[in-house]
């Protein structure tokens, strides 16, 4: 399933970039993250609890940041599995300078889900994913504003 969207952040591009690839910021802002451990260069192990429609569960998996072109673009590979099934996906995040020291973030990705969660909640997945991304960016924005 394809997801895409954009978000405008009131902060300069380099500041946004630094936060977006900072594991502490990610762990603090991605909804439901219970642990995030660095296991290699730009590679993390993560445990995350997510509810999609009626299916709520914890997924254990890996996150890798690849093809990093600071401060313009990077890709994120996610792969996790848990009781409700599995999730795999790749996304591209682009940062463009906007007017008045803002940053225009655009993202697009392809997510595959399987197991019980696919049969129960797939049609809600798009909405949930979009909401999580919005929450993530808005949290990052608040962190930046709060210093």
């Amino acid at each position: 399933m394809k997801i895409s969207g954009s978000y405008t952040m009131s902060a300069p591009r380099q500041v946004v970039w630094d936060r977006l690839i900072d594991p502490q910021a990610i762990a603090g802002c991605l909804p439901g993250v219970e642990k995030l451990n660095q296991v290699g260069q730009d590679e993390y192990e993560m445990s995350m609890t997510v509810g999609i429609g009626p299916v709520r569960g914890t997924y254990d998996g890996k996150v890798r940041l690849i093809n990093m072109r600071p401060p313009e673009e990077y890709q994120m590979q996610v792969e996790g599995s848990g009781r409700p099934g599995f999730v795999r996906g790749t996304g591209t995040i682009r940062l463009a300078e906007g007017p008045d020291s803002t940053t225009q973030i655009t993202y697009e990705g392809d997510v595959e889900v399987g197991g019980p969660v696919a049969g129960v909640a797939q049609r809600m997945l798009g909405g949930v994913a979009k909401r999580m991304v919005e929450q993530f960016f808005s949290c990052i924005e608040k962190q930046i504003a709060g210093g």
Binding site: M1, E112, V113, G114, P116, A118, G119, V120, Q122, R123
Partner: peptide, 14 residues
């Protein structure tokens, strides 16, 4: 089914 073979209608909700 979706293209990867996941049954999308696996409950009476769907």
């Amino acid at each position: 089914y979706d293209e990867s073979g996941q049954l999308l209608t696996a409950t009476m909700m769907d």
